[in-house]
Amino acid sequence: MALGNAKTLTKLIVVTLGMFGFGFALVPFYYKICEVTGINSGAEQSLAKNTQVDESRLVTLEFDANTNEALPWRFKPMQRSLKVHPGQLVQVEYEVSNISDHPIVGQAVPSYGPARAAGFFKKIECFCFTPQTLAAGESRRMPVMFVLDPDMDRDVHTVTLSYTFFDLEAKKQASDGRKTVPNG
């Protein structure tokens, strides 16, 4: 009987240890189930998906960056051009550095080419919405998030987005009546 008990004990301990391992095995199992069934996949959740993408055409985007000559900043896009479907959510980045030895507040003004594309260029997030303060020697990467409206004329194949940074302090002194530069 004692021998039988020892045998049963061994079996039950193996089961116990196996189930302890099973608890941890549930972790990869859980993620696999979520992946296979397509649930709980964070950013790609089906509810948040954009269904308005016009996949029948591609538009070339070109990015351009300038600074006003009075502003001692270096300013450039991180990518020169991009091909996107209208309706697609796009994020691009620009880099700006203050090469002077004092802090400066600047603000960027966008312009579009051709001009008739401007109304279809829907920016969701842009560094041009607010004034940017850069400390002496500071450099910063800034995002622009936008959607090209699928209603944009079909004969527009290339859109250029061009930003120009202005020194906000200088501007303010020059024309005291205006509070902000136009944006958007």
């Binding site: 039950l12 089961v15 116990t16 240890l17 196996g18 189930m19 302890f20 391992g21 099973f22 608890g23 941890f24 549930l26």
Partner: peptide, 9 residues
Amino acid sequence: IATMPVLAG
């Protein structure tokens, strides 16, 4: 013995 180890985990 089937579930207590899972709780322990």
